[in-house]
């Protein structure tokens, strides 16, 4: 019978990504309830040293596939490697990060393993010995409690939502041969964004702008606030469709669905498709001139005023607080 709670550890450029620790901590919690072990699959080139780091967050065993063919990430190489380890060891649960890479990998794994998956979960628990995954659907307009009848029971976890807990384990290393054939895809080029840019999907704090920002140059004051807060700058569909901001920054049902600690909506009226994408943020601040804007119904703190006056003043106040 399938046994063990597994994660796919995500690394980039030889460093584990934060979501890996979120996955490990969550897997530890589930495994303790089941009385089972936590396994992690780690793929890449020259990455064996990262295994010990996973032990710090409760991983008992790290299955390492170390090969130049696994760096950089490609769907077919990584999915082949992970699927092989899973088939050989038969875990009952497999957790993957719902990051850009994890979304791609996990969906391919569902195909390779002929199982089911709950995508982008915000909570996972054990009920009657089985995984019960809670996830937003319709971009958060409703939630679903998902059970997976296939094996392993797969879930991808939304980054930044699950708590990281340290619980030191020795993390035994098991090397395995990924069994890779001729690669079907390769990465020709990695075009990096400006250093320091934080992706909205991974940000703890998001400063977001909409139609009320009035144009690309209006985002300047949002950028300044974001720099002070260490935040990402997001945008509503209106701002993206107007060409003021890049598509990758769009928050909403047709953009990214986000759950930061703090979401500051500036000049966003709160179309339902935008609200859906950010309602699971822990705290929501709305700055808007229009007191009737629907965004205020979702906001923890609302400021009815001109954002061009409030935002720079607020940036100044935050600077003082953080000084």
């Amino acid at each position: 019978m399938a046994k063990g709670v597994w994660i796919v550890a995500e690394q980039r450029d030889g460093a584990l990504r934060k979501v890996s620790f979120e996955l490990a901590s969550t897997a530890r919690k589930l495994a303790d309830q089941l009385g089972e072990e936590v396994g992690a699959v780690l793929c890449g080139a020259g990455i064996e040293a990262l295994a010990a780091e996973l032990g710090k967050y409760g991983v008992d065993k790290v299955f390492v596939a170390d090969s130049p063919a696994l760096e950089p990430y490609t769907t077919d190489a990584h999915a082949t490697a992970v699927a092989k380890a899973v088939k050989e060891n038969d875990p009952s649960i497999l957790l993957v990060g719902a990051s850009a890479q994890g979304k791609d990998l996990s969906a391919a794994l569902v195909g390779k393993l002929a199982t089911g998956m709950a995508t982008d979960c915000t909570d996972v628990k054990i009920a009657d010995g089985k995984l019960l995954a809670v996830r937003p659907m319709y971009a958060g307009k409703c939630f679903g409690e998902v059970v997976v009848t296939g094996t392993p029971q797969m879930a991808s976890l939304r980054p930044n939502v699950f708590t990281i807990v340290e619980s030191a384990k020795a993390a035994a290393i098991v090397k395995f041969d990924a069994g890779l054939g001729e690669p079907k895809t390769k990465v020709l080029e990695v075009q990096k964004e400006a250093a320091g840019k934080i992706d909205v999907a991974e940000a703890n704090v998001i400063v977001s702008g909409g139609r009320g920002v009035k144009g690309p140059e209006g985002f300047g004051i949002l950028e300044e606030l974001a720099a002070v807060l260490g935040a990402a700058v997001g945008a509503s569909r209106a701002a993206v469709d107007a060409g003021w901001r890049a598509q990758i920054d769009q928050v909403g049902q047709t953009g990214k669905v986000v759950s930061p600690n703090l979401y500051i909506a500036c000049g966003i009226s709160g179309a339902i498709q935008h609200l859906a994408g950010m309602s699971s943020s822990k705290y929501i601040v709305a700055v808007n001139k229009d007191a009737e804007a629907p965004i205020f119904a979702r906001a923890d703190y609302g400021v009815v005023d001109d954002l061009f006056k409030v935002v720079p003043a607020f940036t100044g106040e935050v600077k003082k607080l953080l000084a």
Partner: peptide, 19 residues
């Protein structure tokens, strides 16, 4: 291979403050 056992409305947010 999976099913939504139960649909629920999103958790209600407590009413906010206008500053």
């Amino acid at each position: 291979k999976s099913k939504v056992a139960k649909f629920t409305p999103p958790p209600a947010r407590p009413p906010g403050k206008i500053i």
